[in-house]
Design a protein around this nucleic acid. Structure first.
Lengths: 223, 223, 223, 223
DNA sequence: CATGAATGAGGTTTCATTCAT
DNA sequence: GATGAATGAAACCTCATTCAT
């Protein structure tokens, strides 16, 4: 994420701006934007929306401060772009989780749950994304809307489909989880907020906690 | 909160400054402090630690800006005081949750769960407290520690005792919830973060959600 | 200087303000004023006019901040009072420098020079007084005037009389020091500023320096 | 002064920013810095470190307040830069004073002494520099150290060399001034502090005073 | 396109002075 | 007289944003 984007692949001719080939132009532009967003994510994570400094983001991205404004209209827009770029991988992860699973639904759910914790155990960005959404989301309704559409709603839909599948196949009972798949997600979210608040200090034993999570919800679901 | 000066030991009449009743002084001081903290809570809730302005807090509290510094050493200290004052009611709620309950454990747990949602449904401060803890807690370890000791750990202990009681009386099965009472709390916390992020927009139907929560965990717990 | 003024010598009756005896009143008032000035000197020395805080002065003097204004109209007035009170001991030193000396004028001058260094070697206030006069004196012409009248002019007059006596008795030659006795004082003043700027860091060896001072000016003066 | 960025090594044409001539940049930068320091000197002289306002310095320098921080990290750093810039001319004056003098040492010393008074008679900054060093130096040991190295020690070394030269050539006697050249400098320093404290009010007649100074020390030195 | 110097509003914090008690 | 809580005017410093080059 914070790996410096290396531009030294530039052809002989020198000087970015003088690039003749429009394709190279577009290429370069996309690279820069990515570099800026990556830098922004790092800084926003570390400091939050208000405390992050455009100066630092620019430095980290290897561009001048003014350049940021060639790509984003304001700090807030850059923040949104950063958040969106954090969301995308989550989306794909969710999509693929259900995908084409064969086998008992219980196993499918176990895998889904295991997947949830990847963000918490490994130092992925999902946790920090949640922090940002909670901390600053309520002042950016469009961002919240976006998060709802692209992450929350879709993820829950996936979970609900798992429940339905289980019920349809006679593996699961009728439970409130069919209507509120949140119930299957909740323990993981709690572990996230736990980590956000307490950090390493009073950390849960995540392996056993995840196991407990799966066991517990399955106990409720099983026919 | 910030070492109350206790002047009560003064003898009846006489001396010292020509000051009115020292008890009145202390009284007035406590009132002001309360007013400042109340104002601070409002502003910090609306804007977060960085964005809240001391000017506004002072105005809202009906004092001059400089006065704040007679009561708190810095903005951060005021923030902590505000958070602590938010935590106190939770403390009491936690205390009372166990109390002296007679009857089936299932009913006890239902009541406990219903209690959890009071913060979410009614516009109490519990939700916002969580936002503040998540948003800024990681840079104030002492605050997180305090929150852990006084609220998190204690609340979870209460839940665990309920589970134990159920198991002991043969009402509940052995479940991972005995070790991780978090599992019983999680759906409620999720509804909190949900509300913090999405506000009124995509709000859960809390009544039915709470009911589903209770039903679901009981399904897992029941012998 | 910083010794707390102890008021416990108060008679039975209690409570300062209720003091009936007007003589005691005046006594108490004088004590307080002295305490305040002493405290002020300490603080002004340590921090200068602007940086010294009335809060600290009041605390050190054992009175309330508001009380200061019962004795002095403003911070600046208090500063002047403090400086004047520093000047007074110098006055006496100056007075005694002449005294009634019998014997060779050279010995008289040696003694005078030795006396000058008392302020520098011992931690007397003369040095710090000079700092204050230099640092802030130019904005308080009345203070400078006072210092000139009471110390500078008078001290120089004393030195000049010594020179005259030497010349009259045939011990000294005619030198510019008769008109500018400053020349006899200068090395000592230099050692003061030296100490004020460099502190203990590059300190002169004052004993030998003082000796050199005497030797040198006598070399110039001697017939 | 604050690490000049040297861009001069850049090749002729090409690249980098679409920036004008980098040499122009550096030029402009140096001009601004000089303007700021000049303004700072004026304000610090008039008001001292604490009382000088960055607002005023900025206005006088013709820049915005924030611009100051592009050149200096803090008020204190700016103060130091101002002091250093005052010291530099003194350094050079001292260096050149000895230089390549031919002729009797007495004449050399007379010239040196005359040089000393240039700062006092003309409105040069040497006097004010002394005020700043005395008033605020003791809280900036590095500044005092710098002043010692670059001015005090070097100036005294020069004076000592003059004395040695005189002794070596048989023109001067052995006097304490060989060890403490301060004695030759002292009357001038006294005139400086005199002026700092009393201003124009009780001013010495500097022409005749300087003459007296030279006469007096020569009387002591001459073989 | 890219730069980075410049801006200046806005924030926290300090502290001399006042005044009700 | 004495108190000390309260005031509010500055002061320093930050940083998102602009713009000449």
């Amino acid at each position: 994420m914070s790996e410096e984007i290396l531009d030294d692949s530039l052809p002989a001719g020198c000087c970015g701006p003088a690039d003749a080939d429009p394709r190279q132009r577009g290429q370069r532009r996309r690279e820069r934007e990515a570099a800026i967003v990556a830098a922004a994510i790092d800084e926003f994570r570390a400091a939050g929306l208000t405390n992050a400094r455009l100066d630092d983001i620019a430095t980290r991205a290897g561009v001048a401060k003014g350049t940021l404004y060639l790509y984003f209209d304001s700090k807030e827009e850059l923040f949104k772009a950063a958040v969106r770029s954090l969301i995308h991988p989550l989306l794909e992860a969710v999509e693929q989780q259900v995908a084409h699973f064969e086998g008992p639904t219980e196993e499918l759910l176990r895998q889904a749950i295991r997947g949830m914790y990847r963000d918490v155990t490994q130092q992925t960005d999902g946790c920090e994304l949640m922090r940002l959404m909670i901390a600053e989301g309520h002042r950016m309704p469009d961002l919240a809307q976006f998060y709802y559409n692209e992450v929350a709603a879709r993820g829950l839909a996936t979970l609900r489909m798992i429940v339905w599948r289980g019920i349809a196949k006679g593996e699961f009972r009728q439970t409130p989880a069919a209507e509120f798949p949140h119930l299957l997600l909740a323990p993981c979210k709690l572990s996230m907020t736990w980590q956000l608040i307490f950090g390493k200090e009073h950390s849960l034993e995540l392996d056993r906690y995840a196991e407990a999570h799966a066991e517990f919800v399955l106990a409720a679901l099983r026919a």
